[in-house]
Design a protein around this nucleic acid. Structure first.
Lengths: 334, 334
DNA sequence: CTGAAAGCGCTTACAG
DNA sequence: CTGAAAGCGCTTACAG
């Protein structure tokens, strides 16, 4: 591989000049510039990014950590981040945490090691505050995505409260009063917000939220199947079966639907059903499920915007963006 | 940030010794070692990965480029790669090409710039041979994933031929002879193999494959909808409607199913249907579609194995792995 | 068993 | 307008 020294000697100039030509960082006589450029071509010179990063403050790259880029909602956020990053000439380093704080930590350290200019993170369930501490310690620009916090950090997510309120409104208008909530791991802030939003919306309407109809803390689809099945069976015994089920994520919806079908209930026949995030290609399949759809792509784009702003003005006050979700009403709640 | 010099002076040794202690690369007296380690702790020293990479041959990281980590099949391959990489102490840098050769190229260059020890790539449709050339030029270990080639490179994919043969066998046994194939972009080698496999399997049974029942070259679900719709309408006119449709990927299946439903055909009532790759949570929804499921996670794991082997023995002959897929038979082809 | 020193390939004050 | 040289933070022959 040719180095800057090879280029310099071939062009008959100093390495300073080569560097300045390449970076356009001080005036160089047009013909000198040309000599340098043709020497670059002749040698097939490619700048060593590592050596460069060692001297410069920036690497023109950013890091993104999500729990699973394979989940539809995250996949779209990733696309949004990619798009926006590419548009600003930033290369993107992507990593999955698999919802595991240790892996999240490892991913963040690997990205810091590579000197990304900034980080965008959708934190894993149970992610420690120490992680954010660590990033702040490195003075590394950070944007929290989808899963927010009260800390003083740039963040972008959706308005879970209002989406949940609209969903509850929709269901109660149709006469549903006994609604089961499948809320998942409440350490995940977006799930916690949906949970809180549900209770608030129900209370506002003077409706009861019996503990027996709350299925919380499940993490896998299998967990959720068990939890929902238990609730359904118990409620059947005392004749207080819910008339609607509300799942707070795709995974939770999958587990819940399996339990519903396993118990011989029909959606929407004997059970109304709605979910956050939802399934891909959901228009193609029965049952057609009412779904709260996040503007995931825009979330990703906005995260990059916040990051860029932070890179430009490191001392600006933290900003929190809440985008609105859309509800796709379908037959499962008719 | 503390540097190796700080550690050395605090411990009263040379930087060589610190380096050797940290890398366990030559014998150091136990107590000297201990002094170094406590100096590391006291200073909060963290080795600079960039400076280190500049001197060493390896970075203990590998790069993975897929067209879209959000597609279920790729998502599972990514998980497999992550798992295997983590197990071997390799950090993973992931990138999406969005099925765009230019972005694929950019992703690969970014990874090469960061000196990954090796690359795993599921090539984008229309990816140029120049890309592989470029990687070879850098003498960078490479494993092709899912989408293979005739070139002399390590590769791991599935046996599309045999899966397709089994699927055709399944359909013809049920009396289907007029089968429509929705094959997608034939520049994608896995799709090309499925296409070829279909023709071979049909021919073997003495069955006709009229051009009118081949819908190829579509790239998006919308494209595919149009293509399939056109075929269905034309075949209806001349009374030669297919009795079964076979889609070669999830995306193609989505477009095809929309067309089928739009034309008022029922799966499996008036139309049998099967697909490669398939939908997530497909057990939950109607119609239940017969699906060729790749061992995607294992593909990812195997790719890492091949890469590790190549790192150890750079001159070993190229190896090509073909794993077998499973067919999940469901009601859509009953 | 350990250290002094060269060198990886750049960028950037400093000097003229 | 351009160059000589220091320095980023490591690793690794070389020497004793």
């Amino acid at each position: 591989m040719a180095t800057i020294v090879d280029v310099a000697s071939l062009a008959g100039v100093s390495t300073s000049t080569v560097s300045h030509v390449l970076n356009d960082t001080r005036h160089v006589e047009p013909e000198t510039k040309e000599r340098v450029m043709s020497a670059v071509k002749a040698t097939g010179y490619r700048r060593d990014v590592l050596a460069r990063s060692m001297r410069r403050a920036r690497t023109d790259s950013i890091g993104l950590v999500v729990s699973d880029a394979g989940e539809p909602a995250f996949a779209d956020m990733v696309h949004g981040v990619e798009e926006a990053a590419a548009q600003h000439g930033l290369s993107l380093l992507l990593a999955n945490s698999a919802e595991d704080p240790a892996r999240e930590r490892a991913a963040v350290e690997a990205l810091l090691d590579r000197r990304v200019d900034g980080l965008i993170i959708a934190r894993a369930a149970g992610s420690s505050a120490g992680l954010l501490q660590r990033i702040r310690e490195e003075k590394k620009p950070l944007v929290l995505l989808d899963r927010l916090t009260d800390l003083d950090v740039d963040q972008v997510g959706v308005n879970n409260q209002s989406a949940m309120a609209a969903l509850v409104e929709h269901l109660t208008r149709r006469g549903h009063e006994r609604i089961m909530l499948v809320s998942g791991d409440l350490r995940v802030s977006s799930l916690r917000e949906r949970y809180d939003g549900f209770r608030a919306a129900m209370q506002e309407r003077g409706l009861d939220v019996p503990a027996a109809l709350l299925c919380e803390g499940t993490v896998t689809a299998a967990d959720t199947f068990d939890g929902v099945q238990a609730v359904l069976r118990a409620s059947l015994e005392n004749g207080e079966r819910p008339t609607a089920i509300l799942a707070c994520s795709t995974l939770l919806a999958a587990g819940a639907l399996r339990a519903v079908q396993h118990e011989g209930l029909r959606v929407p026949g004997t059970m109304a059903f709605a979910t956050f995030d939802g399934f891909t290609y959901s228009d193609l399949f029965q049952p057609q499920i009412t779904t709260v759809r996040q503007p995931a792509f825009q979330l990703g784009e906005s995260a990059v915007s916040l990051l860029l702003r932070r890179l430009e003005t490191p001392d600006a006050p933290a900003r929190i963006l809440r985008l609105e979700s859309q509800i796709e009403f379908r037959r499962s709640t008719e």
